[in-house]
Amino acid sequence: MAATQRVTFQDVVTWTVVDDVGKVIEPVEAYLDFARQSDYSPNTIRAYAKSLALWSTHLASCNRAWDAVQLTDFGSFLQALRAGRVGSRTVALERGRVVSDATVAARVRPVMSFYRFHASMGVPAASFLYEQVHARPGRYLPFLEHVARRQTRRKSQVRVRVRPREVPVLEPVNVKSLIASEASFDPVSGEWIGDLRYRLLWTLLAETGLRIGEALSLQHRDWSMGRGDTASVQIVPRQHPHGLQLKSGARRVFVGSVLDRLYGDYVWWLCDRGADAVIEDWDAAYIFCNAFREPMFAPLRPESVYAHLDRMKRQIPELPSGMTPHWFRHTHATALLLAGTPLHVVSRRLGHRDVQTTTNTYGHVTEDAELAALANWRHIVQGWEGSADV
């Protein structure tokens, strides 16, 4: 049975796949190394390694070499994935599914990419998986499209249908109650009471749609306070002490004046706790840090954020039990789309590498908005009725 193996080299953490005797599976490692050179995040490498470990386990149970697979091997792999029994020689047909279609699709995609990589390297393995297609000629062509048409493209022949799934969003009252419960301003003393650090974090996630890893990776140099212009935060890929990796490249996200002012109050709040006497280089210091335990002012861990949110969910019953920090991102994107923000603008703000990712995740939001607008169809057709009389 194949398994994923964590590998650490000079403080860099990655993943590979080994067989049942602990030997690295070379074809898989070649593909994962290509993914590393393509700047895939460690979490993505880990997910790809898990999928390819399942595929390697399935091939071993079928006594099939990776470069001698048949189309039926992929069919049995899909069936085994859905039943959660990869590695079993026989999988009984069952009406219910243990694993969702979305999870199955996520497991299959790296396998398809693995064979596409080796096909590009000239290895004649599973050539039946891809159909050679030519780009359709047209008047408006992307850059170098004429070159792509000569070389043809590979189109996957194995697809997993995934039912559209609505992303979880927070009600405005949930966001407000959580933020208010973290810290409040006392006008008498002129000070913030509570944990201003988490009030800033939840407000930042709600207003920007940042991933939790992006927020925790922010250093004070990345926050440009508004001085006659719009404040912003700069997302910068850099090595993090806790191994956090950014999924997308550098980008700038603009923020409002209220959030900018809250950040200023937070800096003074840290100084009141002695940060100015401990932190030597404020520019390189992480914004979200330990404020109540040792090591003081060290970067905050994601595990600490999740543990804190679990405590807050017990204190605030109206918060959804399954809520995670990523729900702020879904809520932010949904709110922007419902407000009529163009899809490509939302995609750029979220840091998606491809607008298609935004469409796949939030396409139902724009569709619902368009369908809701058609509810007032009688008002829409009045213009048609008037023009028809002319």
Rank of each mutant, 00 (worst) to 15 (best):
L196I: 04
W223T: 09
D310C: 06
R261V: 11
R301G: 04
G243A: 09
S304F: 02
R273S: 09
V267I: 09
A277G: 10
E207P: 05
R252E: 12
K247M: 10
Y198I: 01
W268R: 15
G274W: 15
R211T: 12
C271S: 11
M225R: 15
E294Y: 13
F185K: 06
R197V: 01
E214F: 02
D260W: 11
W192D: 08
L244H: 09
C271E: 15
I279Y: 03
A277F: 11
F292I: 03
P187A: 01
K247R: 08
R221D: 10
R199V: 02
L244A: 10
D310P: 00
D310M: 10
L246D: 02
M296G: 07
K247T: 05
Y286K: 07
S248R: 10
A277E: 13
M312S: 07
P187T: 03
S184R: 14
S177R: 04
H242V: 05
F297K: 02
V188P: 00
F292R: 14
L216M: 09
V258Y: 14
V188H: 11
R261E: 14
D281M: 02
H308C: 00
L204M: 12
C289G: 02
W192V: 06
V253D: 04
L218K: 09
V233W: 02
F292S: 03
S257G: 05
K313N: 05
D265V: 00
G213C: 01
